[in-house]
């Protein structure tokens, strides 16, 4: 299966507040609150403005957090991206 590309929410759409081990994300478009844990906030932060798929995001995560086994990271990032899309926090590009 090829990776789907997603786009992050426009700037200013999300209000992100770390609350201890959880991160509360308020989406100003949906008025919904999402409570997430790592690595979702980190993923959102690294998506940038353009289209971004799991492979690209995995590479950025690897660089930022010094991860190994990129292939495993890529698969898990693809799953998390689909979850973020279901929440509406990212959209198919």
């Amino acid at each position: 299966m090829t990776d789907r590309a997603y786009r992050a929410a426009p700037r200013g759409a999300l209000r992100i507040e770390p609350l201890g081990e959880l991160t509360a994300i308020f989406d100003r478009r949906s008025m919904q609150t999402h409570l997430v844990v790592a690595p979702l906030p980190e993923m959102l932060a690294l998506m940038g403005d353009g289209p971004c798929d799991a492979a690209l995001l995995a590479k950025r995560l690897e660089t930022a957090f010094d991860l190994d086994d990129v292939e495993d990271v890529r698969a898990r990032v693809a799953e998390r991206l689909a979850e973020l899309a279901a929440m509406g926090l990212v959209a198919a590009a």
Binding site: R28, R29, S30, M31, Q32, G88, A91, A92
Partner: peptide
């Protein structure tokens, strides 16, 4: 805003 979000999710 919540109602319009439903429209956006339907669009997606």
């Amino acid at each position: 805003a919540q109602a319009l979000w439903e429209a956006e999710m339907a669009r997606r």
